[in-house]
Amino acid sequence: MRIDKDFTIQKVGVSFVAVPVGETSKNFHGMIRLNETGAFLWNKMKEADQTEDSLVAVLLEEYDVDEATARADVQKLVKALKDGKVL
């Protein structure tokens, strides 16, 4: 899974917001609110192709969470991005 569409992320207060730029902005209108974990995973998916397992692994490395929580967070985000046609 990789985010290959053109988005940028801005921090607004404690939230992170992804907005489309360039060609992507012609077909995707709006903004996507992310929390810190979501923004972290988003950036990982922008940098390289990922699997659910690889995303869980980077979350476990970065944050002090158990695997079940990490996996649930990853699945929730991936589903949301697929529903929103970002992935």
């Binding site: 801005q10 607004v12 207060g13 939230s15 917001v17 907005v19 489309p20 902005s25 903004m31 609110r33």
Partner: peptide, 14 residues
């Protein structure tokens, strides 16, 4: 609705 809910909006300029 977004402005009413969070008080801010982020947008690409067109």
């Amino acid at each position: 609705e977004q402005l009413g809910r969070d008080g801010y909006l982020v947008s690409t300029t067109v």
